[in-house]
Design a binder for these strands. Structure first.
Lengths: 351, 351
DNA sequence: GTTAGCACTCTGGCACCTCGAGTGCTAACA
DNA sequence: TGTTAGCACTCGAGGTGCCAGAGTGCTAAC
């Protein structure tokens, strides 16, 4: 059902006002918005039709209208005028992100913080998907007589350590053999390809040291699992508690829902590739009624990788926030490539 | 001003009831509590005096009385009967904590989670104070042609890494020299003793490589700073939002206050040695009115080190929660000594 | 198809009332 | 002197009624 041009103008104006004020919009305000081209009665007629079409609703008879999720959907898909970020805004974002550069995980976390702060919403990000990353190097470092640290370095620039305790004192020779074997077997493997059987098969390969090194192999396996796992960071939850559009109880319930990380995972990993905006009830989760999610993916080495986005009330300045999030994603991709992307072109290990 | 024996009994009974119900306690209930020994009128007289002494207050004229912060203080210091944890509770705590063992920082974090969950309050912990820890070892690991990771290992069992980018390709020789110099200069030093001047002085010591290694020195300095910093973890904030004693707005404000980590730091580091209970207004922070903090320190190698505690509403079951937190602290100390404490007695490095 | 005008509806705030719980006080009692 | 019974009093919670204001829907005229 195609919307007449005037209906589109009215709907757009109404959304613009609503996004600004948060109050139901009456016909009089819209007359002004449309330069007195038509009278309030005409607007009222049009609004009644828009309401019948499911684009507007009234909290009660004598209140103005507010846009429905369907209206926001239409607005985002075809009505809105994207507002580009100013040069200043971009520079600001870039500098803030670069401050955290050095380590991909820190970068993404900092992006989350900055995004939450600038939008006043909660920000979600996933770390670069190390699932498909390859192991570059494994170090075994003695900590004490009977404990050692394993260090894992991946092609995505991630470093992880984990301490392992042996059942008794362990010889240097054993640790060196372990280190050699681990590197020999697993360097170049994808994290996702390493299963328990592969790790277990090392026990025999380690010969005389197989048994004493067993705890280290378990630790190594856990380390790989943990590293392959997608990590989700959620920042700025307090923003939601302070947001005027949420009453404290709704905000609390939303936070409780978001605290179940598997829900978040599902929401984030379902993002196909480009941008995804989930508006209120579209998510089919009652807890997300009244909230919107804007997510996009950042690229790593040119390929879509982790996700970044915000969660906030239905009433968001989509025309502004969407470009902002897209810029964040681009900026993260760019900086991350600077940190590690280039390394991909020049693999260069010592061993 | 000494409290008469009957007043003590009344106050104790009142607190017990109030802690259980959360409602103002009227004279009739107390008559039952005290086995009808006296009439409600007598209780009322006593309560009026207790109120005059500042131990009780009424939300309004026709309501029962609730204990003031001063009453809780008296209760904790001299009236209450500590209730010991059951054997089952202890075992439960031990197994949950041991699951996370391996790394002191993870252990403390997990303790925070478990404590928050079992008490229904927010839990705070500080990581073992690495401030006074000594550097055991520094590793320099090449990541790419022009970047390397620095790894720092301390005597408190902490491992930290940070990636550093050089201005251009860097030779193996340079990295090796850097590694040697760092270890030579800083192994055995306390983290707190390492300042910018000391690090800078390495530039000359590195000779020909001084300049190219400069970024690594900066990174090293940051790494040391970051490692020396006390880390505070706050878990279970959502519990506070759901707690019946907080209306959502107060809970929100409390969370907002707690989010300023420097405030938390001050609260936690001020704990002298044993137990510390800060009740409501005693903290002099208006945001903490209506909330109590119970903190104690866990020991590491027999010496008081980090802190662990909970933050929750004034109305807590102190007689039960205090022993619980103390048990947590003991358990952490014990497990942590198992992980690293013993190592202190057997320092044993490869180099 | 558009507009002016009017009756209608609904919310939010305010005042008012009643009920129940629990107190403070007084006078009598042991 | 300390304890008790009895009663008037206070206050909050919750329900009702009323009013002003905002915005609509509808009708009839343009």
């Amino acid at each position: 059902m195609e919307l007449g041009e005037r209906k589109q103008r009215i709907l757009t104006a109404l959304i613009d006002v609503y996004v600004r004020t948060g109050e139901p919009v009456g016909s009089k305000v819209l007359v002004d918005m449309l330069d007195n081209a038509v009278s309030s009665a005409t607007i009222r007629n049009e609004m009644a039709e828009l309401a019948a079409m499911g684009y507007l609703e009234q909290p009660h008879t004598s209140a103005g209208r507010i846009p429905t999720a369907a209206a926001f959907r239409l607005y985002i898909d075809s009505l809105m005028d994207r507002r580009a970020l100013s040069e200043d805004d971009r520079r600001e974002i870039d500098t803030q992100l670069k401050r955290a550069a050095g380590d991909p995980e820190k970068l993404v976390e900092e992006a989350s913080n900055v995004l939450a702060e600038t939008t006043g919403c909660a920000a979600v990000t996933t770390t670069p998907s190390s699932y498909a990353a390859d192991i570059r190097r494994i170090e075994v470092l003695r900590v004490s007589r009977y404990s050692a640290a394993l260090l894992l370095m991946t092609g995505s620039g991630m470093l992880r350590t984990r301490v392992c305790r042996f059942d008794s004192d362990i010889e240097n020779e054993a640790l060196e053999t372990l280190s050699r074997a681990l590197n020999e077997y697993f360097c170049g493997s994808l994290l996702s390809d390493i299963g328990l059987p592969q790790v277990q098969s090392l026990v025999t390969a380690l010969g005389a040291y197989g048994l004493v090194c067993a705890p280290a192999l378990t630790t190594f396996y856990q380390l790989v699992q943990e590293s392959a796992e997608l990590e989700i960071s959620l920042k700025g939850q307090l923003n939601l508690l302070h947001h005027p559009d949420y009453d404290p109880v709704r905000a609390r319930d939303l936070l409780t829902f978001l605290a179940q990380r598997d829900m978040l995972t599902r929401l984030l990993t379902a993002v196909p590739k480009g941008l995804r905006v989930v508006i209120g009830s579209e998510s089919k989760r009652p807890e997300l009624d009244g909230s919107s999610i804007i997510v996009t993916r950042y690229k790593l080495g040119g390929r879509p990788d982790g996700s970044i986005g915000i969660i906030g009330p239905l009433r968001m300045d989509y025309a502004f926030e969407i470009p902002r999030i897209e810029y964040f994603a681009r900026s993260i991709g760019r900086i991350m490539d600077e940190i590690i992307g280039l390394d991909k072109n020049n693999p260069d290990d010592e061993e």
